[in-house]
Structures are given as structure tokens and as C-alpha cells.
Amino acid sequence: MTTDTFSLSSSATPSGSVVAAAQLAPELDGSSTSPDLTWGGAPEGTRSFAVTCYDPDAPTGSGFWHWVAWDIPADATALPLGVERDAEDIAQAVNDFGRRGYDGPNPPAGAPHRYMFTVHALPVASLGVDPDAPHVQARFAIFSQQLDSASFTATYQVAPEA
């Protein structure tokens, strides 16, 4: 179910923008700082939130997961800029770079890549997923239970060498 009232935004990386320099991977002179996220209009029955960042354009056949975080309390309406990898108040999986928490874009040279940031409203206070488990377990629990979700997309491109 998707409603028109549930929304997600970021001042660091607004919807439709190019991913901000600080959010990029260190290989692109960024610092892999997670963007600030603000949401509102969650559906009735929300007991927690999860946040994901996904690149569907990665040349892997299955995209690339930059961030999977969950067990964000139901009274939260935002995550600050730069969520720590070892934050104690939320669970964060090991991403496709092999590190816990958020890691920013580092696409190969070529076409632009889309980075889809999503907040998921969940009907449970805790997913009950071990953060050391593969992130697919958390994603399965998130996507199979979500009441609603809100997303925005930003892009980044590494220009091909001439």
C-alpha cells in the first residue's frame, strides 16, 4: 500500500538531485556520510521504521545495497546527517561493500546510477533480525511486512575517460 501522505526528504541530497559530495564514497573524495532524512505522514499502526538505500543500476544483476537500517522507533521522524556505523539506537546491516552502516556511491564510469532512499513503515517494534545476518534477511522482513513506504531518488555519474 502506498499513500500520498507518507513522504521522505533530505536537505543534504534532495530528491532528483546529484548525490552530495559528502555522501559519496572516499574513492570519489567523499566521506560516506549518510544524508539527513526526514519523513512524515506514516500510516496508522506504524510501530517502527526501516531505511534503505539501493542502486538498481549497479552492474551486478541484482543492484547494490548501500544501506539497510531498521528498528528505528515509531516516534522518530528523522535521521540526522552522518548516522554512526555503530549507532546503538538502531540496527544496521553489513552493506554490499562489506561494512556496517551507510556507504556512498562509487559507481563505475559510464551512465548515471540512481540511488533510491526509502523509509519503510513497519507494524512491529522490532524486526527481530540479527544485524550480523546477511542484509537479505532484514530486507525480506522489511519488504514482506511494510505498511507503506516513501522514497526519493538522487543520481551520480562518473564520467567515462575520453
Rank of each mutant, 00 (worst) to 15 (best):
G101F: 06
Y115P: 03
A138V: 06
V129Y: 00
S32V: 13
F152W: 00
L147W: 04
Q137F: 14
T2H: 14
T2E: 09
D103A: 12
T46Q: 02
P73I: 04
H113L: 03
G30T: 15
I142T: 02
A50F: 05
S34F: 01
Q137A: 11
D86Y: 03
W67K: 04
L8Q: 00
S11P: 07
A121S: 06
A25Q: 10
E27A: 15
G63Q: 06
L79A: 02
P123K: 04
T33C: 12
V51D: 00
G82A: 09
E44T: 14
D132L: 11
M1Y: 10
C53V: 15
G101I: 09
A109C: 04
T52G: 08
A76I: 02
L24I: 08
W65G: 01
D86I: 00
A58S: 08
A50V: 08
A150I: 05
A125F: 12
P14M: 09
S31L: 12
A162H: 13
G82V: 03
P26G: 09
L147N: 03
G30F: 14
R100G: 08
Q157D: 04
N95K: 01
G41K: 04
V94G: 02
A22F: 06
G110Y: 05
G128P: 05
F97G: 07
L81D: 10
G61E: 08
Q145S: 13
A12H: 05
F6Q: 00
A159H: 08
S11F: 12
D96V: 09
V136T: 12
G16I: 07
H113N: 10
A154Y: 01
P134E: 14
G63D: 08
T77Y: 06
S32K: 04
M1P: 13
A22I: 08
A91V: 06
A21R: 14
P26M: 06
R114M: 05
A150V: 03
E84W: 00
D103E: 14
N95D: 11
V124N: 00
T13I: 12
T46N: 01
T13L: 00
M116Y: 10
S15P: 08
F97W: 13
Q23Y: 07
V158C: 03
A93M: 14
H113Y: 05
T5W: 11
V94I: 15
E88H: 11
T33I: 15
L37F: 01
P134R: 11
T60L: 08
S34E: 01
D103Y: 13
S151K: 09
G16P: 07
S144K: 11
Q92K: 04
H113A: 04
